[in-house]
Design a protein around this nucleic acid. Structure first.
Lengths: 210, 210
DNA sequence: CTTATAGCTTGATATAAGTCAAAATTAACA
DNA sequence: TGTTAATTTTGACTTATATCAAGCTATAAG
């Protein structure tokens, strides 16, 4: 553990809107978010973007870069954030010596795969309101784990960014939020969100007309 | 390399339709496909399915299981296939001793993350015909790498399975295939597919009305 | 070889989500 | 602190894809 600490260095503070890494940047390190909030996104040739995730304190980003020694997405701070750098080749060295660290690294990589595949399920088979309910419940749970309220929190991203993540247009996100509010499942006013009925949202997640 | 060979054992032949592993099965090994064709899919509580990938000879599957010591998807043979088993804890042991093997394993895990994020882009931002063109070009390229024709091959999966992978209904897949055929970009008759114009398909991939 | 079953295509119609537009609200900044 | 720009909401209308249905074609089983 002490040796892992040696490896990790404060990379510094990223102001709202600033970029931790860009697609194409040489891959050298993973990053642990100490405080704050990030989004990762890919852009294809013709300018289309897809937000691939929102990351909060305690989460690791940058794993996309391992495969080709270059990052394949952009990571952008959605609020002022503090980040630690974990040089990857040194992490590999250390994980050869420490089997529990090795195991941990493999689990983190695999967890990212599972997360992505669940988003594929969301994008491939859920309708707008379901996607949004799933998204809100995921945020709720992650805030809860960190000791914050699972039922009352600030959205750190715009409707456009939520839409990009969920495969929807921002107007659809706005309408779906309004509709969940009409249904008394949430209260939403701009970025502040309150979940009034967790179980109702869960039910909404499982609802399919398709 | 010799030591890696020791580790890998023939797991045997999987007949068309048989299951290599199921969601919930204890995770113990990765699998290398020697010959044949698989699909992986996740099923959520209410029975919805999402095909998360199609895997062919030379590819590794099972990485989803590392994170929780249990598989999170099903792997089903789409034709008679031969598989090798790579016991994961022994692979971890060996990769601690052999840095190039360790690096290789990390790249494979990361490549899966990148692949999944590109599917998120497809599902989140492309229209039906574009998704299909992207899919066909991806198959084409993978066949080419293996020394098969990039322009003439058999689809190993049903329209329903293609639809599940691409987030479309089977009728939409069928119509999109017919339309690409009318446009003289492909010839398709049941499962046999011929690409008449690779660059035309690529152009179609980049086309967006949305 | 015959029958049954699963898979595929195509048409008609319905609908969820997208598009366009305008107003309202909030945030940024000079 | 006023002004501008960005974000959000809501409405009216359009469209891509889903749904439903029927007929057709392969493939598998007896």
């Amino acid at each position: 553990m002490a040796r892992l600490d040696d490896l990790i260095t404060r990379k510094g503070v990223y102001r709202h809107g600033s970029i931790l890494y860009r697609s194409g940047d040489k891959f050298q390190a993973l990053y642990a978010i100490r405080t704050g909030f990030f989004k990762t996104q890919i852009l294809n040739e013709d300018g289309r973007e897809q937000v691939t995730g929102f990351q909060m304190a305690g989460e690791i980003i940058g794993m996309d870069g391992i495969s080709s020694d270059a990052h394949t997405c952009d990571a952008v701070a959605l609020e002022d954030s503090e980040v630690c750098e974990i040089p990857f080749s040194r992490l590999e060295d250390l994980s050869r010596e420490l089997p529990p660290l090795q195991r941990h690294l493999h689990r983190i990589l695999s967890r990212e795969i599972v997360r992505d595949q669940n988003i594929m399920l969301l994008l491939g088979s859920m309708r707008a309101e379901e996607r949004l309910a799933t998204f809100l419940l995921n945020l709720s749970q992650r805030f809860a784990v960190r000791g914050y309220s699972p039922t009352s929190f600030q959205l750190r991203m715009t409707r456009h960014e939520i839409g990009s993540y969920l495969g929807l247009k921002l107007e659809t996100v706005s309408r779906a939020l309004s509709h969940l509010q009409e249904s008394k499942l949430i209260n939403v006013r701009n970025r502040s969100l309150e979940i009034l009925c967790l179980s109702g949202l869960q039910a909404c997640m499982g609802k399919r007309t398709r």
